[in-house]
Amino acid sequence: MTPSALNAFRRKLTDCELAVYVDLESRTVLSSDGALHFPQEYLDALCACAADLLASGPKREGPVEHVLFLSPTGSRMFFRNLAEPNEALCCICAAEVAVGTLIDTARAALAGEDPAE
């Protein structure tokens, strides 16, 4: 996902504070776009969470497609790129984010962009 695609994705969602595209295998942040400047350690921690969560599904069911983490103070969402299973889109959103809209927008963004570009 290019930085411009990540920016376009985040701008479609008023509740999204940060979007990060990561490589799950190498646990590397590939790109990020946020309303504020987030320090690299923060992005790295989010990337590690994505790698751990998306690897924690039941092995016999196939790869986990996305993981949603919600709390009273915020939401963190992790979407595997189904075309490139070792890559994922992570975002931090408000607690009351519309989950259905977010999932649809994330899936459309991941499907509409060739990650190799």
Partner: peptide
């Protein structure tokens, strides 16, 4: 060591979406 554990244990939710065939 899982950074979200404290928030999850207090009052959080974790949902794992599996492939549709499951």
């Amino acid at each position: 060591g899982f950074p979200l554990l404290g928030t999850l244990e207090t009052n959080g939710l974790l949902v794992f979406a599996l492939p549709e065939r499951s």
